[in-house]
């Protein structure tokens, strides 16, 4: 039996987040929760891998409060086989370092696996650190920003990693963790049988003790990160566009622009 593990996060369903002015952390009360949108592509990819390989089990994991059970059930309705909820008061206020430690310990408890998948980042924290963090704790390679998988089989993958200038083609042998982009696939609508499975599924809750987590590495006290200030990042500016059809003086304009920027 081959094994794919997907890491997901339940996030507030809104872009209008409210920040607690004292602690500088998010106010989560009263906001409906969804699966982090990027994680939906990871779930879809895991289920596609299962359909391609056959004899493969997909386990979905999240760390969160008891309500995160709903996110795991939604993942099962899309075709994941089983789920684990990591929930313990001791995990509360973990930063990305502590969270990825906890998730890696859960992988340790599960044991064997072939592929680990996560979304590129969560829409609430936007750090994109937990996926790579898990891979670091486990000592396996991590490829971020995956937008195309050319070939995948147990112990091997050939894929595209997207960046601003284009994409890299990467091959890996052995175990690996991928964080995925929305360009990778289109998440399916849950099937009826999936929804019935999700209702019936028994989802175990694992505590810090269950996974053998070091108390000094979890929760607020185990988290080295301190949030100093939260703000919206500036919008990334695109390049300039000058059209030769509309303006015959374009070559001159381009030349002076490049000189100004000290490119030529």
């Amino acid at each position: 039996m081959k094994k794919v593990i997907v890491f997901i996060k339940q996030v507030p369903d809104t872009s209008e987040l409210k920040i607690d002015p004292v602690t500088n952390t998010m106010i989560r009360e009263g906001v409906p929760s969804i699966i982090n949108p990027f994680d939906m592509y990871a779930i879809e990819e895991a289920v596609r891998i299962k359909e391609k390989w056959g004899d493969t089990e997909v386990t979905v994991i999240t760390m969160g409060p008891p309500q995160a059970d709903a996110a795991l059930r939604e993942a099962i309705s899309m075709g994941c086989d089983n789920a684990v909820l990591l929930s313990d008061r001791k995990f509360a206020a973990s930063d990305t370092w502590a969270t990825s430690y906890v998730l890696s310990k859960a992988v340790g408890k599960i044991g064997e696996y072939d592929v680990l998948l996560a979304g590129k980042q969560a829409t609430d924290g936007d750090t994109a650190q937990v996926g790579p963090g898990i891979a670091t704790w486990l000592g396996i390679p991590c490829i971020t920003y995956v937008n195309n998988i050319e070939e995948i089989k147990p112990g091997y993958v050939k894929l595209h990693r997207m960046h601003d200038e284009g994409y890299d083609v990467i091959e890996i042998e052995g175990k690996f963790l991928l964080t995925v982009l929305k360009e990778l696939n289109e998440p399916r609508i849950a099937s009826f049988r999936g929804k019935m499975n999700a209702k019936k599924a028994e989802i175990p809750v694992w505590t810090a003790e269950d996974i053998g987590a070091d108390p000094a590495k979890i929760g607020f006290m185990g988290s080295p990160t301190r949030v100093v200030k939260a703000f919206s990042p500036p919008v990334k500016q695109g390049g300039i566009k000058i059209s030769a059809e509309e303006d015959p003086s374009v070559p001159e304009k381009l030349k002076s622009y490049l000189r100004e920027k000290l490119i030529i």
Partner: peptide, 20 residues
């Protein structure tokens, strides 16, 4: 394809024949 994947065509088929 989506109807199929979501089990909608299974609805009217008896369970002995892979329906719902």
């Amino acid at each position: 394809k989506i109807f199929g994947q979501s089990d909608l065509y299974r609805v009217f088929v008896p369970s002995e024949y892979e329906g719902l």
